[in-house]
Simulated assay, not measured.
Amino acid sequence: MRLLHTMLRVGNLEDSLKFYCDVLGMKLLRQKEYPGGEFTLAFVGYGDEVDHTVLELTYNWGVEQYDLGTGYGHIAIGVEDIYTTCANIRLRGGKVTREPGPMKHGSTVIAFVEDPNGYKVELIQIPS
């Protein structure tokens, strides 16, 4: 068994694709509209779905916003240089909500960014 994907409901598919692809550097792997169900699915990630876990962005036609609730935490992405990554995210129009630095009560270097829907994405410095 392996983890295939995580699904996020998004209010504006184009804004979300710009964030995940242009700001975070993922690739749009596939996208399909389902007129009968009035929704569109877009799968994005850093590699092919055969070998990598990806994100499924679900746009329900006509729904522009969701209540994120208190159960969702974040997705996490490992990065080699967290300071440069955050600087590049800012240059591409992304929102850094927690500057890079050691996590509270630990030594792992982390940062947080926020997507256009308010979902949190944790960046974790990969030890070299």
Rank of each mutant, 00 (worst) to 15 (best):
E80S: 12
I77M: 07
F112T: 13
V54S: 07
F43N: 09
G25N: 02
H5N: 15
E38K: 15
Y83D: 14
R90Q: 10
H105A: 15
K120F: 07
K120W: 12
P127A: 12
L91A: 13
L29T: 02
V54F: 01
G69V: 14
D48N: 15
G78C: 04
L13G: 05
A87V: 03
V63Y: 01
F43P: 03
E64V: 10
A87K: 11
D22H: 06
G47V: 14
G11I: 06
D22K: 12
G94A: 13
V113A: 10
E56V: 12
P127S: 08
S128W: 01
F39P: 05
V113L: 09
G45S: 09
R92C: 06
V113D: 02
V121E: 01
T40V: 15
D81H: 05
L55M: 05
L41M: 11
I77Q: 02
T84E: 11
V23M: 05
F43K: 11
M7D: 00
V96Y: 02
A76Y: 01
H74D: 08
G69D: 09
E38F: 03
P116M: 11
M26T: 05
Q125Y: 03
E80A: 13
G62P: 01
F39S: 12
M103V: 10
I75K: 05
P116Q: 08
P127R: 10
P127E: 06
E14C: 07
M1Q: 00
P35G: 06
D48S: 15
T97H: 06
V63G: 00
F43R: 10
W61V: 15
E49Y: 02
T58C: 13
E14K: 15
F19S: 07
G78N: 08
A42R: 04
F19P: 01
V79N: 02
E14R: 14
L17M: 08
A87F: 00
V54L: 05
D15Y: 01
K104D: 10
I126V: 14
R30I: 04
D51H: 07
L4I: 10
L55Y: 00
G101S: 07
T40K: 11
R90A: 10
E114S: 12
D22W: 00
V79K: 02
I77N: 01
G118K: 12
F19N: 03
G36D: 06
T70L: 11
F39C: 15
Y66D: 01
C21T: 14
E80Q: 08
T70C: 05
Y20H: 03
L41C: 07
L55N: 03
V23C: 05
E122K: 12
R9F: 06
D48H: 13
G36H: 01
D15S: 14
G36V: 03
Y72A: 14
A87R: 11
E56P: 03
E114V: 13
T108G: 04
G25Y: 02
P116T: 10
S16V: 04
Q125S: 09
G47K: 13
L41A: 10
G101A: 08
I75L: 14
K95L: 15
E114H: 07
P116N: 08
